[in-house]
Design a protein around this nucleic acid. Structure first.
Lengths: 145, 145
DNA sequence: ATATACTTTACTAAATTTGTCAAGTATTTT
DNA sequence: AAAATACTTGACAAATTTAGTAAAGTATAT
């Protein structure tokens, strides 16, 4: 349960590859596609969305490619995923559209709300810098054991 | 993103209704269906799964229905959801089946792993008793504000 | 007996996901 | 100017998953 779309996953991995070139070197779409084993056509779709969201910019012509719009520590995983897959919305009730109409559902509604906020909080605290560092995972406890 | 299936949602709501009758009074499937506005046929499927998972037991004949197999504080939301929708598996890599084969994917893999554990932890700490009490939500901070 | 209620399996319509394909636009280098 | 490189856009479709219906059957208490 609670699967993340491949689009979101590929998006994060693509942003990670672009981060590697940061700062200064545009990373070509073909390079990302090869390193992350995703089709160029699908990546075009994804990167286009991320560019419109303002997370990356593109450079055309030979030697061109994609660049981060901000520093890696200023781009959160949550932002990337929201751009591609919309906000975390565990249930219809939690979705900005279509309010909750259930009488007693409120109890479970609070539950989903609390979980949703926990997830968003985690994703928003995690940035590309953390991915580059390859650390900071584990949250409450140490990661190693 | 990260939608919860209606099956899982209905399952939790159904367990909540059964909890209300606890201890002693079997809750009829029709009663659950009416109170939660779900079709009897779909509920049958869901309750059957939960029964096989050992979370509830059934009483046949007139006046029959479903009963909790354990105390409300001993049945977690995580257990209910896992019975119906399988374990939290944000990505294929995190799924018990089909291991991760990516070379550099390990970095993002750690990310998904950490998030998955956070979610499971939350769901496993939350029980039917909490739903009955209608409190304990909010986690780190107070719920009201 | 019979009404009530649970049990099981099969099936399908709709929505979503996951991409592919094709054609076009912009920019830099030669 | 021409050509190569690379980004841009939108349409489309196969595959999968979800969500739910339907039908027939089994068990139990009155």
């Amino acid at each position: 349960m609670l699967k993340l779309s491949t689009k979101g996953q590929y998006g994060v991995r693509a942003m990670f590859e672009i981060s590697r070139g940061h700062p200064g070197r545009p990373v070509a779409i073909r390079e990302i596609a090869e390193r992350q084993d995703v089709s160029v056509a699908y990546l075009e779709q994804i990167l286009n969305t991320l560019r419109k969201a303002g997370l990356i910019s593109s450079v055309r012509g030979p030697g061109g490619g994609y660049l981060l719009s901000r520093q890696p520590e200023a781009i959160s995983i949550g932002e990337i995923l929201r751009s591609l897959d919309g906000p975390v919305a565990l249930t219809a009730c939690q979705d900005p559209l279509a309010g909750c109409v259930r009488a007693d559902g409120c109890v479970t509604s609070l539950l989903w709300k609390a979980l949703g906020e926990k997830i968003e909080g985690f994703l928003d605290r995690m940035t590309l810098r953390d991915l580059l560092a390859g650390s900071k995972f584990g949250g409450e406890r140490a990661v190693g054991a």
